[in-house]
Amino acid sequence: MKQVVIHPERCVGCMQCMVACATAHSKTKSLPGALGESPLPKPRIHLGTGLYREGFPNRCRHCDPAPCMMVCLPGAIYREEVGNTVLINGEKCINCATCAMACPFGVIRYHEDSLGPPGKAIAVKCDNCIDRRARGQVPACVEVCKCGALTFEEPSSSFKRKTDEMARRVSAGAEERAEVASPGFVLMNVLKRAQVELSGREA
């Protein structure tokens, strides 16, 4: 079954996934329309900042067993078996934050949600774009990610790619013809890292 796979080494930190996620979870499903809605839709994928100012797209892993599900006292969190997606029933949610405490990845937020019960703050997180999937679309974050940091694929194909990459790296003479997917991106990150490291030096 296809899943959203994160490739952090490819994240350029553009935050387009956040904008697309919020739009996909709006009432109008369009960016200009979404900006006029109340409450404003919010993203369920969040970009973190690494030690060297690089981006990291952080989203729900839909764990199995899911710690959030196990600790949810009113039983608002459940698993949708077909897509193996952990979902939250906003009507049942009591906004107690226990799931957020249990979540090892910090991906659960609390707010009134465009698509949830009106006037009530609830736990909100990634739903694997279950509505878009039903319409035959890929998750919004994946669709908008043009640099391959988020892909929607069989985990086995992703694993195979990684395995082959590793294998090529240990081939005889690999150092001489090392493959770098984007020398420009590597160069930029080396320079950014140097900038950060200067901050800790004796002046």
Binding site: C11, V12, G13, C14, M15, L47, G48, T49, G50, R53, E54, G55, F56, C147, G184, F185, M188
Partner: peptide, 10 residues
């Protein structure tokens, strides 16, 4: 602002 957009940075 962090992380800043890599497309724009490049």
């Amino acid at each position: 602002q962090l992380p800043q957009c890599g497309y724009c940075e490049m």
